[in-house]
Structure formats: C-alpha cells, structure tokens
Design a binder for these strands. Structure first.
Lengths: 215, 215
DNA sequence: CCGAATCCTGGTAGATACTG
DNA sequence: CAGTATCTACCAGGATTCGG
C-alpha cells in the first residue's frame, strides 16, 4: 500500500513514497529513541491528529518499517518499535536534520522543544571523528526531561531517561548552555562559571562533550 | 511562507516544512543535474501537474533553495537553478535515495526511467573511498539519453548530455548492463563479451567504473 | 485511561483547459 | 514556452465517540 506513487524507477522516489507523507519522518525520529506507545508518540508530537498518527503507524507497519507489539501481561500496552529496516533511515534523517538545523536560531512563537527533538540534535551534531575509540556515558538533565548519551568505542546511542552509570551528569540550570557549547559560542569553562550549568562527575568530560557535539 | 508547520524546534521538522511536500524532493533531485527550464522539469517529471510544479518552484525560490533567472536575449527562456543552500541538500537526498534503492528491483508497471533518476543512481552508488585521487571522465549512453560522469580527484559530478572529453564511452546495447555492473551480478568482462555493452576508449576504465559505483 | 475509529470540514493535489 | 485557471478528488486537521 504505497500511499501515492511517483511513477519513477528511482530510489529517492521510492523513499518518498514510503516516508514522504506528512508526520512520518517525525514519527520515525521519535521511534529512533526506542519503542514507544501510542500515547508516548502523541505526547512527543502533540499537534498530530490521533487519526493521522494511527494511520501512519499502520502504514509503517505494513511497509515493514515498524512493528506493533503487545507487551506482556502486567501493563497491557501496545508499543511500536522500528525494525532494522526502519532504523536504517537514521543516516537520512540525520542528513536532513543537519540541513534543517541551519535555520534553527530561536524557537518560533508556539514552538515546543521535546525530548526527541533534543535527542535528534545530539545525533545531528555528533562528530564520530572527534570520538574515535571513546567510551563514555552522559546524563543530560534539561529540567523537563532527561536524556542519556552512551558513546561506546566511538558509537553514539541516544535514549530518553536517566543514564544508569554516567561518567558525567550535565544539568541545565538557566539559558541554553548545551546549545551554546555545541555552537561554540561558549566554552565549557564559561558555562560552568556563569552558573548556567551544573555537573556531577569528572568535569574534564564536559570538554570532551563539547568536542564531540558540534554544529 | 513555510507551507505548514510542525510546531517543533527541531532541524528535521524545519527541513520537512521546507522540502517535505509532495514532489519537492524530486524537483530538487532534477535540479541537481544543473539549471533547467520549466518544460525540462516537466519532461523529467511528466506526471506532476503543472500548477503544482509552478507552486513548488515558487516555494523553492522564496525559501532561497533555487533561483529563477531569465536567460539573455536570443532564447527568451526562464531557467531554475539551485542555490548553494539548495545544493547542500544533496547528502540528504543521497541518503534517502540509497535507502529507497533497497526495494528497487524491477520497474513497476508504468514506471519510467528518466535521465535524472539514473543520474541520482550514480550519486547514490558512488563510493568515494574507491575513487581516492582518481580523475576520469565517462560518457554513458543509454539509448534515450546520455549522461556524463566526471570524477576529479575523487569528487563526482554528474550531468546530462555528452562528455566533452571522456576517458571511456559506455554504450548500452541491450538489457541493463549498467545496473548489473553496479550490483556486481556481472563483471566488466561479461557485459563486454555478451554484447550488452560497447565501449570506446580505454577498456580498463570499465573495471574502475564497476568499483566506484556499487550498490 | 489507552488506542484508536468516525465524522465533518477545509486545504492540498490531480487533471485538464486555457492564455500571454 | 511558461505558466494560470478551474474543477474534482483525496488527504489532513479537529472534535467526538467507542471498545478493551
């Protein structure tokens, strides 16, 4: 059930037939952080109509990009999860997100920042060449939510929620210190000194952080 | 005039607002091969309604992705051309095209193959690591159209039309020898021997070709 | 409460005709 | 050649409803 076809024998056309409809890419972005329930997805995409979310999930399942799975007994819930095939879209989402981030200065009126959009920004700004052979875990506390970054031998995995054993906890206190670190407009020393950030753990890991995540 | 907004402060959301509408990516794909007139674009995307093509070009121009330029006197024509900003989408299109190409076996009934879709397939299959330091030009004749590939010090540029000074001319005679070379289902020797391809120039460059372009 | 299905409305795309 | 105009069909947005 390829939604609407382009009539061209072309990989890009095929891709756009499968994931080019409105909302689909953002749903995949959110599922990249792990399995999510219908309600979780709706929380992360508050303005999507539920019937559209429902329809997109069905399409993703039919196209083999995601699976729908009923959790075992205690909490009888349904979770949606990307298949390997769906997860293979990550490089494309990163490339798109990186391009789109160029016009990302201030949130527009009414725009929200979700845990998943921040998770995405970690993926798009991650520089593997600055993380060669590195293994370290970060917990990033943003007030409304907490993210975990695990870099294992230079491979990044981003998740939502606390980190079980972080090498460094980075806690945002005021302003946008994380973005300032990533853009290079402030140094690790500066954000520590001006009180916009508080850390717990080895402070040297903040310097490494600002090298590995760069716009 | 960001078509319809997602309300999220996120690079991917911004990208999808700008280029996520139906047809937009394929128009950009076609413009990647160089400036094109309205009619050229319509030839390359025969099933797009002209009002939609018109609307998309206007949006691309307003968003700063493309420019509309009237050619000097003799042929009073209008050409559309990507800006640097628009051309920066190439990595994202390649990533999407590569992902979409996984389900690309046979053309579906009614699906056409255009010069631009083939140009795209050269971009998605190009392996820079197999072309380190290489400088060579190919002219690929497909019957209905001819493409030129110029690799300069490992950098690929794809265009439509003949190559001014090709190191090798690859002419398709029967079947799909180019795709078979790229997929590895046939060797350079085989496509030469079975008569599906004819070359002009240094035949050894066909081997190099099959190394640099691989699914 | 979770995960939708249903209904209605409005906007966007498709097809075709037409014009400077 | 390079679009605009018009009409229709479909898809998205929003609210409500419904079953487990």
């Amino acid at each position: 059930m390829a939604s609407r076809e382009y009539g061209q024998f072309c990989g890009l056309a095929r891709a756009m037939e499968m994931v080019g409809e409105r909302w689909t890419m953002l749903i995949i972005r959110n599922l990249l952080t792990g399995a999510q329930r219908f309600t979780d997805l709706h929380k992360g995409l508050p303005t999507i109509p539920t019937n559209i979310l429902s329809a997109r999930l069905k399409q993703l399942e039919e196209a083999g990009l995601a699976t729908r799975r009923a959790l075992p007994h205690p909490d009888r819930a349904v979770v949606y999860e990307l298949t390997d095939y769906g997860r293979d879209l990550e490089p494309a989402l990163i490339a798109l997100g990186r391009w789109g981030a160029r016009t990302l200065t201030e949130p527009r009126p009414g725009e929200i920042v979700t845990a998943e959009s921040i998770a995405m920004s970690f993926r798009t700004t991650y520089r593997p060449e600055a993380a060669r052979g590195v293994t370290v875990g970060y917990e990033v506390r943003m007030g409304d939510f907490t993210l975990r970054l695990q870099i294992t031998d230079g491979e990044l995995a981003v998740g939502i929620g606390p980190h079980p054993s972080p090498g460094l906890i980075i806690e945002r206190l005021t302003g946008y210190p994380i973005r300032e670190l990533m853009s290079g407009s402030k140094t690790p020393g500066e954000v520590l000194r001006d009180g916009s950030v508080r850390t717990e753990g080895d402070p040297a890991l903040l310097g490494r952080f600002s090298e590995m995540f760069r716009f």
